[in-house]
Amino acid sequence: MLLLIPGPVTTRPEVRQAMGRDLAPWDNDFRQFLARLRGRILRLAGGTDPAHAALPLQGCGHFVTEAALRTFLPPGGRILIPATGAYGNRMIRLAQEAGRVAVPLPMGPADAADPAAVARALADDPTLSHVGLVYSETGSGVIHDVPAVGAVVRAAGRRMIVDAVSAFGALPLDLSAQPEVDAVVFTANKCLEALPGIAFAVARADRLRACVGNAGSWSLDLADIYAGTLQFGAGSFRFTPPAQVLAALDRALDFLDAEGSAARLARYTANMRTLYDGVRGLGLVPWLPPERQGPVIVNVHVPDDPAWDLQAFVDALKSRGVLISNFFTTPAPTFRVGCIGAITPADMARAVQAIDAALTDIGVTHREAVHA
């Protein structure tokens, strides 16, 4: 099955096979392995030891995003969050549910975050200590300019939290060049092409030391994870870790090292272009214009045809060996196709053929968009 969702992604068999043995997370061999793995993650983010720390947390991207918000903002702390789409809105809700004050920065659903607008908002409200930005907005497919936004945050003397959940491992990131970033957060099961179950924050050590006691949660406290690292070493893990998932991640990083982040991004971009041009050739209309389309996910307007049914379409695709999401996160109805994972442009060409056939299977004859 070709898994074309923006995470979990299609993985290599060698990555899945790495989970094939039992591991004891408190064993000394595992502790050495975990310390080495955290070092690999730290270097991939452009972090340096001891200025930064790679902090593992069991669970999904939402868990580590909430942990960062709780850790680096005190209760009642105020954060500006560009409303980039579905995942920007989720960051807003996570902050609010944690008792922090999220101040949305309105923007168009197909727009990139405007650094000048961020600068104006910070200048107008000196109580905002942080900016939270989604690097790759999988709700729309737009990629936001983290260095450009970071530059205005840095100039304003504020801090930044970056959600790189569907960006890390492919899109450029260098924490050593962005000292305003308290933490970048991400998971293993997207551009790293590993398996779900583990998330990471790469964070500034000085900020972690300054934020002890903020979280109001033992489970979601990055400062406490860091304190444990200092006390027990980088091979330590609070609570029971997903040991086999970490083993799979280590194997996946071998493939990333061999390919290189720039080459991985080029492959994803070629995947996207094959899909984007392919669906246009079928008479369908992508959600974004080509100049704003990122390499991670393509959303496609649904056909204006009474036979259209998203679940029926998903089922028809699945019968042809292609699996996509059975929901959408754009303001208008779309279907979404991920372009990341252990896949190639040839796989995307096959997916385009399957989309064409699936539309015919469910009786769609008019493929122009409802809301284009």
Score class of each variant (00 low, 15 high):
P331D: 10
R367T: 09
E368T: 14
F328S: 14
H366Q: 12
I297V: 15
A358S: 09
P289Q: 15
I324L: 03
A332V: 15
I340Y: 02
D347E: 01
V285W: 07
T360D: 14
P345E: 05
I297E: 13
N299W: 08
S319Q: 09
V302I: 15
P333F: 01
H301Y: 15
R292G: 08
N299S: 15
L317T: 06
P289R: 15
D347W: 01
G278T: 13
T329Q: 08
V337H: 10
R350S: 11
T329P: 00
D356P: 03
D309N: 15
A358H: 10
P306Y: 08
A369I: 06
I324E: 04
Q311F: 03
D356Y: 06
A357K: 14
G294F: 07
A369V: 07
V298R: 05
P290K: 10
S325I: 00
V300A: 05
R336A: 13
F328M: 04
P303C: 10
P345D: 07
Q311N: 11
W308G: 07
T365V: 14
Y276N: 09
W287A: 04
G294L: 15
F313D: 06
F328P: 02
G363K: 13
P295M: 06
G321V: 05
D305E: 02
G341R: 07
V300G: 10
V279G: 06
G281C: 12
Y276P: 08
T344P: 04
D315G: 06
V302S: 11
R350T: 03
G321R: 02
G321Q: 04
W308H: 02
P331E: 05
A357H: 03
K318Y: 01
L317S: 10
V337R: 10
V298D: 08
T329H: 05
A349L: 05
V364S: 04
S325G: 03
F327S: 11
G281L: 09
D356Q: 11
P290W: 13
G341W: 01
Y276F: 15
Q353Y: 01
G363L: 05
